[in-house]
């Protein structure tokens, strides 16, 4: 969680320096969904995330060096600099291309997990998406397909109460999006998405169901992004004290740290993690900065197979 947060803080700074381009969607405040889920997964389990997926991919094991180099558009990036912030991929870690079309990954995860089922592999596939994405037709088509094909897709909805600048109350009649999965007879649970343990429990259960051949699961993680939708978001659409409440009292990293302290982890051990993360990121940023941009002829590569 700490790695994800600090990674994005670095990206924010690099964006301000003009080294990161495009739009930067941070998951600050939501890191527990990623960490809780990834701890339940094996390397060969699949992940498809979205444009707010840095936390998910880092938790699933993408290399911080390759990820940071990708942010800077360098040839050493995880996608050779062609994908950028929104399309991180690392097939060796089961990370399929992240998607920047809201709802775009739904059918793909169903297909990917159908392949696993056909090959009698016990791997599962996790899809991360937001509350807003459940209003896309693909979400509904894919949940229906996942249910009739009984594939090990794990649909994790990060309900952060907003899709871009619009509150959920204006876009969706349901307060609980888990209801939507129940319409397709997909078992659905609601979890405190800022509680990494609760997240992990829920995903472990879903993984077990998937590996057993019991089909898809839907997990609604109630969470909140405590930063704007993207850099430059004025956030005029939500009350400041709401943000403050989530940022102070409900912060997943603080909550986890205090839980760990009550369980006997020492403050020194926690700050060692922070130190490690700083070292990892110093190295990643340096690596990214020193890496070259791709050669111009590289534009013609990876369009078609050879």
């Amino acid at each position: 969680m700490h790695l994800a947060r600090e990674f994005e803080r670095r990206c924010e700074a690099l964006f301000q320096q003009g080294l990161v381009r495009g739009s930067l969607h941070m998951c600050i405040g939501q890191e527990a969904t990623a960490a809780g889920a990834a701890l339940a997964l094996r390397d060969d389990d699949l992940l498809i995330t979205n444009y707010r997926g840095h936390g998910h991919a880092l938790a699933k094991g993408i290399s911080p060096r390759a990820a940071m180099a990708e942010m800077l558009g360098k040839v050493t990036g995880c996608c050779k600099g062609k994908g950028g912030s929104m399309h991180w991929t690392d097939v060796s870690k089961g990370i399929l291309p992240a998607n920047a079309i809201v709802g775009g990954g739904f059918p793909t995860i169903v297909g990917a997990t159908l392949a696993a089922k056909m090959d009698k592999l016990d791997r599962v596939g996790v899809l991360f998406f937001g509350d807003g994405a459940t209003n896309q037709g693909t979400a509904h088509e894919a949940m229906n397909l996942a249910a009739i094909w009984k594939v090990p897709s794990i649909f994790i909805c990060e309900n952060n109460l907003y899709s871009e600048m619009t509150p959920i109350s204006k876009t969706t009649p349901n307060k609980d999006l888990a209801e939507r999965a129940l319409a397709y007879r997909i078992p659905a649970v609601i979890v405190d998405g800022n509680d990494v343990e609760a997240m992990n429990d829920a995903v472990c259960n879903a993984v077990q169901r998937g590996r057993r051949g019991d089909g898809p699961t839907f997990i609604e993680a109630k969470t909140y992004r405590t930063v704007g939708h993207m850099i430059g978001d004025s956030q005029i659409y939500r009350p400041k004290d709401e943000v403050e409440l989530w940022r102070t009292e409900r912060d997943p990293i603080t909550l986890c740290a205090s839980k760990l302290l009550t369980r006997g982890v020492t403050a020194a051990e926690l700050s060692a993690i922070e130190h490690d993360v700083t070292a990892i990121l110093d190295d990643a940023v340096q690596f990214a900065k020193e890496s070259p941009y791709p050669e111009l002829d590289e534009v013609f590569e990876d369009v078609y197979g050879k």
Binding site: C78, K80, G83, H87, T89, L96, P97, G305
Partner: peptide, 8 residues
């Protein structure tokens, strides 16, 4: 294919 830098 292109977005993933040829990984898929």
């Amino acid at each position: 294919r292109q977005m993933s830098g040829g990984q898929v």
